[in-house]
C-alpha cells in the first residue's frame, strides 16, 4: 500500500479494483497481511466501532453465518480504528472467532485506502468487500452507518465467484 491515501469518497473501492494490500495488528503482538490469503476469497468487513450496538449485531450475525462462508473457503477479516486491546476484549465479550484488525496507527489508513473512512467521525465506514482468490475486489457495498447490511450480499458474491471458477 502506498502512502497516498485517497480522500474520503461516498463510494467504496469498486468491483474490478485490485484490493490494496495491508498489514494490520490482529492482537497486540500479531499482525495479519492481506496478501497472505491469496488463493482464497477474503471478506473484508469495515465497521465503525467496537461495542456499538449495530456493530455487535452485524459481527455476531457473521459469526453465526461463518460456516456458510467456510463452505466457500473464504476468510473473514473485520477492521475498525479501535486498538488491538479493545478488539481483544470485544471479541471475547461477543464470542467472535475471526480476526478483528486494528486500523489504529496511522489512524484509518487502510479504511481510507478502501474509501471506507468517515472523516467527520474519525471511524471506518460500514462497508463490505468480497475479494476473489487473486485479491481482486469482486463486490463492495457501503451501508448507511446505522444499518446492519446483513450477510446475503456477501453470500451472493461468494456464490458468483464460485460459479465463475467452476464454469
Amino acid at each position: 500500500m502506498t502512502d497516498t491515501s485517497p480522500p474520503h469518497r461516498d463510494t467504496p473501492l469498486p468491483a474490478g479494483t485490485v484490493a490494496p494490500d495491508f498489514e494490520l495488528p490482529s492482537t497486540p503482538d500479531q499482525k495479519v497481511m492481506l496478501s497472505d490469503f491469496r488463493g482464497q476469497p477474503v471478506i473484508l468487513v469495515f465497521y465503525p466501532e467496537d461495542w456499538s450496538p449495530v456493530c455487535s449485531d452485524q459481527l455476531g450475525l457473521y459469526q453465526a453465518v461463518f460456516p456458510e462462508f467456510q463452505k466457500h473457503n473464504a476468510r473473514l477479516l473485520a477492521i475498525s480504528v479501535d486498538s488491538a486491546w479493545s478488539h481483544l476484549a470485544f471479541a471475547k465479550d461477543r464470542n467472535l472467532h475471526f480476526p478483528l484488525l486494528s486500523d489504529f496507527e496511522p489512524k484509518g489508513r487502510v479504511s481510507r485506502a478502501y474509501h471506507a473512512y468517515r472523516s467527520g467521525d474519525g471511524t471506518s465506514a460500514r462497508a463490505l468487500f468480497v475479494l476473489d482468490a487473486d485479491g481482486v475486489i469482486r463486490w463492495s457495498y457501503l451501508s448507511p452507518v446505522g444499518v446492519n447490511p446483513g450477510a446475503d450480499g456477501i453470500l451472493r458474491a461468494l456464490e458468483e465467484i464460485d460459479g465463475k471458477e467452476t464454469s
Binding site: 449495530v54 452485524q58 446483513g150 450477510a151 446475503d152
Partner: peptide
C-alpha cells in the same frame, strides 16, 4: 429457518 432468514436479508 435461520438460513432462509439470512438469504432474505434478515440483519438482526
Amino acid at each position: 429457518d435461520f438460513m432462509s432468514g439470512v438469504r432474505s436479508g434478515v440483519n438482526g
